[in-house]
């Protein structure tokens, strides 16, 4: 067993873990942060995408021990706490846009899709349709046919740009 410590969604954690424990299993099974999902065993689907020190990473291809000392951000930490009765007020623009543009159906790929899109928009704040599609290449969705995901990401991008300029 090896001791690991990391910050996940702003909270510090420390545990003794097996060196082979995948980061995604550490998040889900040890920390019980089950907002991040597992959809495959070959790093193809991207359902497990989180941010590792600010960049998107598939948490099924990272060992928990490799994330020692890192900052991990998941979909669970994305929304700001909202004092308003309308909880969507605290949502990240991507969460809002996936909702308003119907960018999800079953929702299983959504946490990974949102985290991958967040990374994409940090790199490119104003992607065109092709750039969004290529930017999300590593994340599979079986429900939406991607059209509304593309719309959602571009809607969120516009809101984020507006927020940045105001």
């Amino acid at each position: 067993m090896t001791r690991v410590g990391m910050t996940v969604d702003g909270e510090p954690y420390e545990h003794e873990v097996e060196p082979r424990l995948l980061l995604v299993h550490y998040l889900r099974d040890v920390l019980e942060k089950t907002g991040t999902n597992i959809g495959c065993d070959t790093s193809n689907c991207g359902a497990c995408t989180v941010h590792l020190d600010g960049r998107s990473a598939k948490s099924c291809t990272v060992l928990a021990v490799q994330a020692d000392g890192s900052q991990v951000d998941t979909v669970e930490g994305l929304a700001e706490p909202s004092s308003d009765a309308d909880e969507t007020d605290g949502w990240h623009p991507l969460q809002k846009a996936f909702h308003t543009e119907h960018g999800l159906q079953c929702g299983y790929c959504t946490p990974g899709m949102i985290m991958a899109a967040k990374d994409l928009l940090e790199e490119n704040p104003d992607p065109d349709e092709t750039e969004v599609r290529e930017g999300l290449e590593g994340n599979l969705c079986r429900c939406t046919g991607y059209v509304n995901i593309v719309k959602a990401v571009r809607t969120a991008a516009a809101e984020l740009r507006e927020g940045a300029s105001s």
Partner: peptide
């Protein structure tokens, strides 16, 4: 009408079978 289902799905407060402990 925007979906009632979305709130827990976009925020990761889901209950997939594998989440159960």
């Amino acid at each position: 009408k925007l979906r009632k289902e979305d709130a827990h799905l976009v925020t990761g407060r889901t209950q997939w079978t594998d989440n159960l402990q």
